[in-house]
Design a protein around this nucleic acid. Structure first.
Lengths: 409, 409
DNA sequence: CCAATTATGTATAATAAAATACATAAGATT
DNA sequence: AATCTTATGTATTTTATTATACATAATTGG
């Protein structure tokens, strides 16, 4: 169905930011709820909402809610009124996606990646991919709302750069946001990949939980934290970096960070692969370890179970310190299922005080491989549609070429 | 100086809540700043501010700021326009204070306390003391704004009760807020004492720090956390309960919680006292331990230093998990000064990755004994003068008998 | 001492928002 | 099929706020 393009007049949507924010966050999805939540009068809500509807940013859905009289019409952000582009840098590939405002994937792209490339080369490649994805997405979704980049390293979120030495040589203190903003005139977000996976898990599966921890057990071990309903990053963006907490013993293994006895050196994918190799099995990656587990190799089962108990030791410290109500276990080794989980639960229930575990759940993640990409999309949209920045976003809409309207708009 | 009483007309302060909140939080302390921060027009700010000034809730201070032309007059909450009453339940005493809105102490009271008294008897005594303090404070400070109670036990802040078994038998799940509200028609807050000490430390000494941890080392060991600029409590209000994290060893001592190897069983006041007693010295409390330390007894010095290193182990886990920029050490054993601190620093810098300790400070608390009382006062005032509740507070003012005016009002 | 600058006070007209009222739409219930 | 209930649309009057303008106060600088 042909959708005409329509410029957005600034006066049409002036002052409507607070309504748009309420709809975007799900806090109000009907006229009555907008009335209640905004504190504005019915005439003012109607006037401003009509502007959002006319501009195509908001639409009336097919859904209605029975009310005993005339049914209530459900309102929603028009997912097609804009798009974001998100990228996840993995160990061997860079995965990018253009997503609408729901967010749902519009298009994807995968690039090869080598950690020796350095930031300039890598960001140039990412930039080219973003340009290509944006060109297509702009045809149907108008406004390029923002860019999100996921990195497997500690990230200072405010400054938008990697902090400290990491698995990405040459990236420490590199001005990623500055680099991307010189090429794209849109807001840019950079965040640690585990933090983004945590956001996705929270947003999609546990939005009502205020305090949770997501533990990613893959090649390495890391975690993300939701505290008081929001991602908690810490002073340098390194909160949740539990992989290098040490448990000392006579035979403490050397970690690749240079210390002895780190839980990563005991229980991460690379450590279990090392121990399998020492027993005559071939394994290099977390995935290889899971292959042996899937084949019911007793040695692999034993090492995974022991890894669960080791991880349980540090998770029990996390539970004592943070008092969350939920622990979600993800990452490649989480595919070990109850073998891993039962060890974690054993140590947590053994080590923690009853109060801390009284209402604690420990579950496996059901997230897909692309959860960091969706986490990045949620990060962008939550920020730009939030109360503090929504008026600026509306200004960008009114200054842009326009937004395609839905057929019923 | 004679201060006339004046009823507050509701229309006088109608709609002025946002301005009052801005002044109370320090976010705006001049007319120009109120203009900027509120988004209201100059005429509206003037009209509403005049209402607050006329009502006596806000006053023009003696301070002015040079501006190149007419100097800017500094505005402030009128500290004498209300009061709060706060109480701290200690091991042997209950300490109460009436405080004005600065907060500064107006009057104090100390009651004897026995943990066998149970909540009904204790709250009845506290209630009587509150009534007496309130009667006096009302004469000069008009509105009784709220009550804050500090407890040496884990507290579910939302429900206002102790959670789990603790050093207060009979208090678990007791409806403290309900009990006090039946007697006093004011907002009531209940919070863990270490959390309140943390709030006071943050508010007074480190208000610009977003992520810090306060560790209290006294008879027991506990901590409070500021995350993202706000107190972090966890799902049950038990965040920071680090005293029962265990470090296992062959000779792990039995803790009073029933587990072996808790850091409290190794490094708390009661544990050091036990170890001193085992060496022929008489010690029962953390204060006794510090007495021996002050007398330079080598055994006491050795045990305190070892305690510092044990505490450093768990603090290093806290630093890895939370990534704070500041650790503040308080409680009775903190009077051991550098003897304790050097051990903590040694283990933290040894165990943590360089990124986590790059910008980390570890310092001693300079707070007085009554920091939990001040923490409770800040808790009440921050909440009731906050954006969400300030209009309700103004309604209480307009429904009350009035507020004494300053002479220049 | 006077002029310039900036803050604050006061007043009025224009505009936005709220309050109020009447009308129609779309289900649900009888 | 008719009536009732609730949501939504539309219009007008009243009230609040903003914009604008003029005046005075209190410093600072020359």
């Amino acid at each position: 169905m042909k959708k005409p393009n329509q410029s957005i007049d600034a006066t049409m949507i002036d002052g409507a930011g607070s309504l748009l924010s309420l709809i975007a966050s799900g806090a109000a999805t009907s006229r009555a709820e907008l009335l209640e939540a905004s504190g504005l009068s019915r005439a003012t809500v109607t006037q401003r909402l009509n502007g959002l509807l006319a501009s195509g940013l908001v639409c009336e859905t097919q859904d209605t809610l029975p009310s005993g009289g005339r049914p209530t019409r459900v309102l929603a952000i028009n997912a097609e009124s804009g798009f974001v582009i998100v990228a996840n840098i993995g160990e061997t590939h860079i995965h990018l996606a253009a997503m609408d405002l729901q967010p749902a994937i519009l298009a994807e792209m995968t690039l090869p990646f080598s950690i020796t490339s350095g930031p300039d080369v890598t960001l140039a490649q990412i930039g080219d991919a973003i340009s290509a994805l944006a060109k297509d997405a702009q045809k149907t979704n108008g406004l390029f709302v923002g860019i999100g980049l996921s990195l497997p390293a500690p990230v200072d979120f405010k400054r938008g750069c990697v902090v400290g030495p990491s698995v990405l040589p040459g990236w420490d203190e590199f001005d990623i946001i500055g680099w991307l903003k010189r090429r794209f005139a849109v807001p840019v977000y950079v965040e640690n990949d585990v933090n983004l996976m945590t956001i996705c898990e929270h947003k999609r599966r546990f939005p009502a939980i205020d305090d949770m921890v997501f533990v990613k057990i893959g090649t390495g071990i890391g975690s993300g934290m939701i505290a008081g309903g929001r991602l908690f990053r810490g002073a340098q963006g390194a909160a949740g970096d539990i992989g290098h907490i040490q448990f000392l013993s006579d035979d403490a293994p050397l970690c690749r960070c240079g210390k002895f006895g780190c839980i990563e050196a005991r229980a991460a994918g690379w450590a279990i692969a090392r121990d399998l190799n020492a027993r005559g099995f071939h394994a290099e990656t977390a995935r290889d370890v899971i292959d042996h587990v899937d084949q019911r190799k007793p040695e692999a089962l034993m090492l995974l179970r022991a890894a669960g108990r080791t991880i349980g030791e540090v998770v029990s410290d996390v539970v004592s310190i943070l008092n969350p109500s939920l622990i979600v276990i993800g990452g490649t080794l989480a595919r070990g299922g109850d073998l891993l989980l039962s060890g974690i639960r054993e140590l947590v229930y053994q080590r923690c005080l009853p109060l801390a575990t009284r209402n604690l759940s420990i579950v496996l993640s059901m997230a897909q491989e692309d959860s960091a990409l969706f986490g990045a999309a949620y990060l962008i949209l939550d920020d730009l549609f939030g109360v503090a920045k929504v008026e600026q976003l509306l200004e960008r809409y009114s200054n842009s070429d326009g937004v395609p309207l839905r057929a019923d708009g």
